[in-house]
Simulated assay, not measured.
Amino acid sequence: MKKLGLTLGKFAPLHKGHQYMIETALAEVDELIVVIYETDVTPIPLHIRAGWIRKLYPDVRVIEAWDGPDGYSDDREHEIREETYILGLLNGEQVTHFYSSEFYGGHMSRALGAVDRRVDEPRSRVPISATMIRSDPFRYREYVSDLVYRDLIVKVVFVGAMSTGKSTLTEALARRYGTTFASEYGRDYWTEHQVDRRIGLAAFDEIADGHLEREEQALLEANRYLFVDTNAITTRMYALDYHGRSPERLTRIALENAQRYDLFFLCEDDIPYDDTWDRSGDQKRQVFQRQIVADLLERRIPYIPLRGSLEERMRRVDEVLAGFVPYRNYFGARV
């Protein structure tokens, strides 16, 4: 007889306790079904939470329960609703083992006619809960996979022309919020590889890849927020300025960048121009700034302008972050 396992939950977020249960089940049954409920306890959408399991465990059959029973209770009325819902999803398919680490394993396994398989119910093997992680992901970082953790971090990028204060602001905010930042990889690359203040077209792909690698490393060590100085969209603007075209990979990464970040801030060119050897003058800054704004508008990317002194800019970022909820429509508010 085929051994068919089933487990269910919100996985908000998926943590290593969940993973231990899933891996235990995979070792014991021929096939495993994971049912994931929609929930209000986290802003992270259901399909993203389902995606974590699909990527980590491609052999698992994941069912997204968008209309599943709400709440969490040992009230018999609620139990009946949940049992009825799950049996309806299975449509006659016979589950042989029901996996859980909580009390509901009893009533669900009876309703399914399945073995009640409790895994690490006292949380001695993996002493964590999703509630604990939601309260402070950074504190409980060791209990969350890299794949999941990156989706728990608010990714904030600062764009603007040269000498608009992006680097200073990014580092200052990282210090204020006790987190990491990703500096502009392109500037470091250009300084090391430029010849007569120029770099080749293919170098812009290397810059885009290098910047993403720098971001990913900082992201996995971030605390709530990651602050990023410049992105591939701006790198593409430099490629167009240098060569009149953008290499294919950079163009694709720039397209994907619109969805990579939670918040875009535009550093305005209202501060004094810092005329260092590697820059091309204030007039060039003004032109480049207009081009960046036009590109953001063309891509339909909502952005928040930052003006004034460093403290004024930081206060504006503070205001936005205080009211921002990931995966929600923030931009209904006045910016």
Rank of each mutant, 00 (worst) to 15 (best):
M1E: 08
F11D: 03
H15R: 05
H15E: 12
H15L: 04
G17Q: 04
Q19W: 06
E23Q: 09
E23Y: 01
A25C: 01
A27L: 04
V29H: 00
I36K: 00
V41T: 13
P43S: 15
P45G: 04
L46S: 09
L46Y: 00
H47Y: 15
A50T: 03
R54C: 02
L56D: 00
P58N: 04
I63N: 01
D67S: 10
R76M: 09
I80F: 14
E83G: 06
L87Q: 15
G88W: 12
G92M: 15
E93W: 08
F98E: 09
Y99G: 08
S100W: 06
F103N: 14
F103R: 12
G105P: 05
G105D: 09
H107T: 11
H107W: 12
M108Y: 04
R110K: 14
G113C: 03
A114N: 06
V115K: 15
V115T: 13
D116A: 13
R117H: 07
D120H: 02
E121S: 11
R125V: 12
V126C: 09
A130N: 03
R134L: 06
S135V: 04
F138W: 14
D146P: 05
L147T: 07
D151E: 15
L152A: 07
L152Y: 04
V154C: 15
M162Y: 10
M162F: 06
T170P: 08
E171Q: 14
A174L: 00
A174Q: 00
S183C: 00
S183H: 09
T191G: 06
D196W: 12
R197H: 10
I199G: 05
L201Q: 13
I207L: 08
G210A: 03
E216G: 11
E221K: 11
R224M: 11
Y225L: 05
F227S: 07
T230Y: 09
N231S: 06
A232P: 04
M237K: 14
M237F: 11
Y238M: 08
D241L: 11
R249M: 10
L250E: 11
I253C: 02
L255N: 10
R260L: 10
Y261F: 15
F264Y: 15
C267R: 05
D270M: 06
P272A: 00
W277N: 14
G281E: 05
Q286I: 11
R290P: 05
Q291R: 15
Q291L: 11
D295F: 08
L296M: 15
P305F: 02
L310S: 14
L310M: 12
E312W: 08
R313Q: 12
M314A: 13
R316K: 15
D318T: 06
L321S: 09
G323T: 14
G323A: 11
F331E: 10
